[in-house]
Write a protein that binds this DNA or RNA. Structure first.
Lengths: 230, 230
DNA sequence: AAGATACTGTGTAATTTTTACACTATCTTA
DNA sequence: TAAGATAGTGTAAAAATTACACAGTATCTT
């Protein structure tokens, strides 16, 4: 396409902070880079945006290529555009966070050529990251926290059926602080979008807890004019 | 600079939603375009990002070129990257909002070649805008509202000395709802970052109100571990 | 089967925050 | 000095938040 606009010796990319929750810990998916720059370093998954591709679809595509998953909860949270953030040239990157249900797979096989492998890393024990990805991660967790305070996005990280304790542990992991059990339950249940199931936790060596699920229909009904608007 | 990266037939830009508050109304600064596309349409001020320029500095520069003002409160709030948002080609735009003190000037003389003139428009009576700028504006006001709920950014829009009524009118204009006078005052004063001055409003034909100013030092002290972190 | 282990599930009182609401005080102008 | 216009103020009720501890139940061990 001839645009009539000046040509730029520069590029856009998408970087993704992919959050998962497992074993009571909040984790992000990192790739080990197979190529320079930052060969052998850990980095956030990301890639260049094609010229004929919207940034939303680019983010979806990149996530799909890496994980094989679609329809994840994704949220654009910031764009990083320092001139020197990429050693090879001008690359402006639009950062997204994604929330996924880990479901036990620890390793994810990336299909792409630029990454050797991908692993989940607990956010409290991250390796050094290439580029400015540590900054990007820091920003992402702050935005995620803020978001959680007005939208119940945590459910995107849990299995469909979960216990209130699991939910609380997740909130604690994201907010990085202990919460009071009774107050937490009271509050969560008061929202009215949790559906209690006739089912209990299985495979635990102690009293099994009730399972709940997030009732999105009820949620939308209740909060259509509140928390829902962006 | 030779980057080794593929060349893109595409461009970055910055668009700014510049908020001002005047005569009890929240306004934004629009330019009338002198060039195609959207010649003679109103649009948000914005421009391309130079290749050797960070996006923060580009935003600062663009704002300065248009208004002559520096050191405004600016905040990046979203990046728009649909393939077809710009009729001439692929332009990804990083959107910022800026808050400025109008101080009575209604017209701002833009120095740039692409804009005929710039005018303040009340946000409740905006003309049709070129490109996807109406979407960008909508997003900006939502982000601004959200932000105001946890950070006292309103002061950036008021003169240094202001009355509590002025402050309340501004909150009402941003949040688009009436607030209770007594409750508003009680709450604002309770934060402890408003400094009451030994001075009164002048030039009004009724009882003059006390003037206050925002005490940024106190604010930082009080909220350093709370509202302050991003 | 008895006891140890480990987590589930529950209520209340105190405190803080939010909300609703109306009149007097002060200044200016005619 | 009266009329007009906004400033400035308090309280009570309701709602939300916080702090706090133990009995119940399933499983496992011996």
């Amino acid at each position: 396409m001839e645009t009539g606009l000046p040509k730029f010796d520069s590029a856009f990319s998408i970087d993704c902070v992919i959050f998962g929750f497992e074993a009571g810990e909040l984790k992000i998916l990192l790739i080990e880079r197979a190529e320079d720059p930052f060969k052998d370093w850990w980095a956030l998954p990301g890639n260049l945006v094609e010229n004929d591709e919207g940034i939303e679809s680019a983010a979806t595509r990149i996530l799909y290529e890496l994980t094989g998953w679609r329809e994840l909860h994704m949220e654009q949270f910031h764009t990083f555009g320092d001139v020197n953030r990429h050693p090879l040239g001008r690359v402006i990157t639009v950062a997204y966070y994604a929330l996924i249900r880990i479901n036990g797979k620890k390793e994810v096989k990336p299909v792409t050529q630029y990454a050797k492998k991908a692993f989940w890393h607990p956010i409290n024990d991250l390796p050094r990251l290439g580029f400015d990805h540590s900054d990007i991660f820091e920003t992402s967790i702050q935005k995620l926290r803020r978001r959680l305070s007005y939208q119940p996005i945590a459910f995107e990280l849990l299995p469909e059926k979960f216990t209130l304790t699991q939910l609380q542990l997740l909130y604690e992991a994201i907010l990085n602080k202990k919460l009071d059990k009774r107050n937490f339950r009271k509050k969560m249940l008061s929202y009215g979008f949790l559906k209690e199931l006739d089912e209990k936790q299985k495979g635990v060596s102690y009293r099994a807890a009730k399972l709940y699920k997030f009732d999105r229909r009820k949620y939308n009904k209740i909060f259509q004019n509140d928390m829902n608007e962006e």
